[in-house]
Amino acid sequence: MIGASGSLGSVVAEQLSQKNQVTGTYCSREPTIKIDKVEYKQLNITDKKAFEGLEKGFDCVVLVSGAMPATMSGYEPQTYIDVNITGTLNTLEFCRQRNIPKLIFIMTFSDVSDSFYSGLPITTEQPRKLAMTGDHAVYGISKATACDLIEHYHQEYDLQTILFRIPTVYCADDNVDFYVDGVKRTKAYVKMIRSVVQHKKIEIWGNPENAKDMPYVKDFSRLIELAVSSKTAQGLYNAGTGSPVTLEQLVNEIIQVFAGEESVEKTYRPEMASQPNFTFDMSKTEADFGYQPQYDLRSMLMDIRDSVDSAVWLTSDL
């Protein structure tokens, strides 16, 4: 598994290690928390020769590692080219040269961002339409190019390739910050939880009826496990929930889970920007993997509440 030390990759690696022998890679810094059953190796995927240090005998590669705007301080578009395109090509060559029969890849949903407000579930057949402006443009282009390279290796070398298109996957770890236009900010839902816990108040920005898919990392890791086991799945799959959550629902559940019976003041701010409004058609994913999410919104928030370091999540200054 390439990229086993981040918020997403570490949970996937732990899930896979329950039934599989897993080698997990990290790029530069060794993981602070290691999973007992996972063997860790350092790997820079932009360096083709670095793959020579990996052992033989793998039957699947899960490629989670990638450069993305949410983790980029400032703006370095070359990084997207190096990591997401060259890194993917190096991984594909590694699969070809080692006769590894399967690659699983994580794809962004920015390739269909123009369909967010259509009111229709986004299908896997939705035409690709990439943004050509903004800080996500080169990122989206690089991920789409990686997908095209993967399809080439599928057709040319009969590599089984499974691509999961993901929205934001919600995690329960101490990584509460991300980058917007290269500037560090705290994740919106973390700020909302902190406001409820510390001040017993919460703001609802934009249209409270806008709804979006909110998959939980533990469900997503089970989906990856199903993909590793599948002998027939091929191509692009949506990795959402198919059950979008409105902002109003999210706020009400945060209050219930983190404030309980205490009164919380809600303030509506319709003049502020709204969250995206979209949902995924999950029919292909359900049919090919027999997949159904186990976590709804409340159980996800309860698991986050019971799993995270409260000193980081709940008591930091707003």
Rank of each mutant, 00 (worst) to 15 (best):
D177S: 14
D177H: 13
D177L: 10
D177Y: 15
F178K: 08
Y179T: 00
V180I: 12
V180N: 10
D181W: 11
G182E: 11
V183W: 01
V183A: 12
V183S: 11
K184L: 09
R185Y: 15
T186F: 05
K187F: 00
Y189C: 00
V190P: 09
V190D: 07
V190A: 05
V190E: 04
K191N: 15
K191S: 15
K191I: 13
M192C: 05
I193Q: 12
R194N: 14
R194G: 14
S195W: 04
V196W: 03
V196A: 02
V196P: 05
V196I: 11
Q198W: 04
Q198M: 11
Q198Y: 06
Q198L: 13
Q198I: 08
K200C: 09
K200Q: 15
K200T: 08
K200A: 11
K201D: 11
K201C: 11
K201G: 09
E203Q: 06
E203L: 01
E203W: 01
E203S: 08
I204Y: 10
W205Y: 14
W205I: 06
W205G: 02
W205R: 12
G206M: 09
N207D: 15
P208S: 02
P208W: 00
E209H: 09
E209S: 10
E209M: 04
E209T: 03
N210G: 04
N210D: 02
K212S: 15
Y216K: 07
Y216R: 06
V217D: 01
K218Q: 10
K218T: 07
S221I: 08
S221A: 15
S221K: 09
S221N: 10
R222P: 07
L223D: 10
E225S: 08
E225A: 08
L226P: 00
S229R: 13
S229C: 10
S229P: 02
S229M: 10
K231I: 02
T232A: 02
T232F: 01
A233R: 00
G235K: 00
L236K: 11
